[in-house]
Computed example of a mutant assay.
Amino acid sequence: MRQSEVHALACEVCGRLPHPRRTRLTLAKLAAVFPVELALHALVLHLEIPYLAAVAILTVTTTILVIWVVEPGAMRYLARWLHGPELSRRHRLDSAERLWRIRVRLDNKPGRLELLAKQLADRHANILTVHVHHLEDGVLDELVVSTPADVGPPRLTTAINRAGGTAVGIWPASALTLVDGQTRALGLAARVANDPDELPLVIAELLGAQYVSTVDPEFAPHGTILEIAPMTFVRPEDPFTPAEIARAHRLADLAQLAVRQD
């Protein structure tokens, strides 16, 4: 358990642990080396061997023991204490609440969203934002929720199913997801008005989609395609809603207007 916790701090690229704090590293080395030095000196003095021989024995023996035996062993044994501050921060990070972006299909009936909110609340999931997209065969609700560290997609999916909904997707989110949607859309529109050539990138950012020049036929069944001539956007397994399509077309209209004024 001790080693596995410490190993979690290792760099994913090089596999090395972070360098311990200097004070703790110094104390750990002193604690490891001092008893060995003391025991070796006491033994050599007790044997009363010639001075030069005593110096040679102490030098060679101490060097070998400290470098290859004592210090590595002490670093492994004291690893948890050496990396205590980093482990503490890692524990706080792992136990912090998480943000999730959820898209769920619901029947367009009274009480469905309330039932979903209750099921999420039973799992200590707090709804932070809700956007409702009306579809022909129901509604697509987009929510941002915060949950305890032990509540992940499986439990959120269970809550959605018990509320009578169908999970379209559950993705990790960040604080940027909580930025007001209207403010974000206005900022993107300003980018298009200032530079119409930004239109493809702005639409891709607005929709969370990929701007592509051509569509791979093998990919099409697994994703949703939106074409705004001459542009094509793809978003895997996450359908574009009528509201999103309308916003993309309005941005395209704004770009054309900006070109005409130039």
Rank of each mutant, 00 (worst) to 15 (best):
P18S: 09
A167M: 04
Q210C: 04
Q261Y: 02
M231E: 14
L207Q: 13
A167S: 12
L93V: 03
W68D: 03
I127Y: 07
R98Y: 00
L251Y: 01
K29Q: 15
V192A: 06
P239I: 08
V215F: 04
A248R: 10
I225A: 08
T62P: 02
V69F: 09
D137E: 12
H41W: 15
E97R: 14
P110H: 08
C14A: 09
T157P: 09
A193F: 08
I245V: 15
P18W: 09
E136P: 00
A252W: 01
M75C: 08
V179T: 14
V179H: 15
P236I: 06
E5P: 03
E71I: 14
L128I: 00
S88R: 12
A185C: 07
C11M: 07
L30Y: 10
D94M: 08
H41K: 07
H222S: 04
G15V: 04
Q256V: 05
G223I: 13
V104D: 01
V202Y: 03
A121L: 11
R112V: 10
L47S: 09
A79N: 06
W68P: 00
E5C: 05
K118A: 10
A121R: 12
A258E: 14
A117G: 09
W171C: 05
A220W: 15
W100G: 00
G111N: 11
L47Q: 07
R76N: 06
A255P: 02
E71N: 11
W100H: 00
L116A: 05
T183Y: 09
V33G: 04
F240D: 04
H91L: 15
T61Y: 00
Q3K: 01
G164L: 02
T147I: 05
L65M: 09
L226N: 04
I64P: 04
A79R: 08
A74H: 02
A42E: 10
L135Q: 03
A193N: 15
V139W: 00
H19Y: 06
R103A: 02
W171H: 11
L135S: 02
A149N: 13
V215T: 03
A252S: 04
Q210M: 12
E114C: 08
A149P: 10
A32R: 01
H131S: 07
R162V: 13
G73R: 00
A39D: 12
L143V: 08
L82F: 07
T183V: 13
T177Q: 13
A159I: 12
I102D: 11
G15R: 13
Q119I: 02
A54G: 14
E136H: 11
R80V: 07
S95I: 04
A79T: 01
A248M: 06
E227I: 09
A258P: 09
A175Y: 14
P217M: 03
A190K: 13
A32Q: 07
H124V: 01
F233E: 11
H7C: 02
L106M: 11
C11P: 06
P236R: 14
A79E: 05
S95L: 07
L186T: 02
A258S: 15
L199S: 03
L140Y: 05
V60N: 07
T63G: 13
F233I: 06
V144Q: 04
M231W: 15
R89D: 10
V36D: 11
